[in-house]
């Protein structure tokens, strides 16, 4: 059976949700071959999850330094491995890091690249949702080992217990651009925005007060997002921005509060499965894509919804 390479993103061995999605997709095409870059202890932490989602084999690109050289060393090692093992296709998450590696891989392998796919058939025909979700494009790579990045949350992860063979490949640290120090982001208890199943976002309408947004997100067990107006004003960190120049998200539920729905915001959330809107202005364009829209004040509607959800959960 053909080998479908899956690049596994992780933080200190904690595997990103995208890996379970990519492994699920890989199994529908061929044998899932997981590739993870980092140390042996990262690998040990990751193996149980990779087995749970049906990896047939796992390769560790081993280097203690690899995390200090964002993408070039990984791309070189991954390209060599894909060539020597005859990969049929390489799947990566459509995240900032995934795309950086993917671009390099395509150059090294002289292969075609498709980014932000939301589906992929066994014949490797990909579907992309473009122009803010208004158009679906089907394309296929015609040269090389196809390099395809898959949008987070586009594939429903399905477990398939297995026990993968493990191999380690030493990677030489290639020092070009290097990270000299880090200030890790303070992570709250909320899920990661790009992985979240539920997102509650606030915009200019919050007037800087995100408390009702955060409380509703917490009641729903979701992540908090923001429009660019809100991040530009410094009300919420840039890493929470949804839209053209922020994250593209596709959760089961997206709740937009006090957001008008500019085309650049919609570009990042329009493919969410269910969209709920709370906005004072009945003419706001965001209502055009709402499954459930409330014309009202978010400072009244959101707290009432939060209380209602808490009451139900008991």
């Amino acid at each position: 059976m053909s080998k479908v390479f899956v690049f596994v993103d992780h933080t200190n061995g904690a595997v990103a949700k995208t890996a379970s999605e990519l492994l699920t997709l890989a199994r529908s095409i061929g044998q899932a071959h997981a590739v993870i870059a980092g140390t042996s202890s990262d690998l040990d932490a990751a193996v149980p999850v990779l087995n749970k989602f049906g990896a047939s084999s796992i390769t560790l690109l081993e280097s203690g330094e690899i995390n200090n050289h964002p993408s070039s060393a990984i791309a070189i090692a991954l390209a060599d491995l894909a060539k020597s093992q005859g990969a049929k296709v390489i799947l990566l998450p459509s995240t900032a890091r995934g795309k950086e590696i993917a671009g390099r891989l395509a150059v090294r392998l002289e292969s075609g690249i498709i980014t932000d796919a939301i589906a992929l058939t066994p014949e490797l025909v990909s579907t992309q949702s473009v122009f803010g979700g208004s158009t679906l494009v089907h394309s296929q790579i015609v040269k090389g080992i196809p390099v395809i990045t898959i949008r987070p949350n586009a594939i429903e992860p399905v477990e398939a217990a297995g026990s993968a063979a493990i191999e380690k490949v030493a990677v030489a640290a290639i020092i070009t651009a290097k990270i000299t120090s880090r200030e890790p982001a303070v992570r709250g208890a909320r899920p990661e925005l790009s992985e979240a199943n539920i997102i509650v976002s606030g915009g200019r309408g919050t007037d800087g007060n995100f408390a009702p947004i955060e409380e509703l997100a917490d009641a729903l067990g979701g992540a908090v997002g923001a429009s660019r107006a809100a991040t530009d004003a410094g009300w919420y960190p840039h890493s929470h921005q949804v839209g053209q120049t922020g994250k593209t998200v596709s959760p089961a539920l997206y709740v937009a509060c006090g957001i008008s729905g500019a085309i650049q915001h919609r570009a990042g959330m329009q493919t969410s499965k269910t969209i709920v809107v709370v906005n004072k202005d009945p003419e706001a364009p965001i209502f055009d894509i709402a499954d459930f829209g409330v014309v009202g004040d978010l400072f009244a509607v959101a707290p009432q919804a939060t209380a209602g959800i808490k009451a139900r959960k008991g």
């Binding site: 090389g144 829209g293 409330v294 509607v301």
Partner: peptide, 22 residues
């Protein structure tokens, strides 16, 4: 080109949603 667009289609329009005034 290394990739080829086979076809494209307009995404199905989102069904008309519910809109309530608070």
């Amino acid at each position: 080109a290394w990739s080829e667009v086979k076809d494209f289609a307009l995404a199905p329009a989102r069904g008309a949603g519910v809109k309530v005034v608070d």
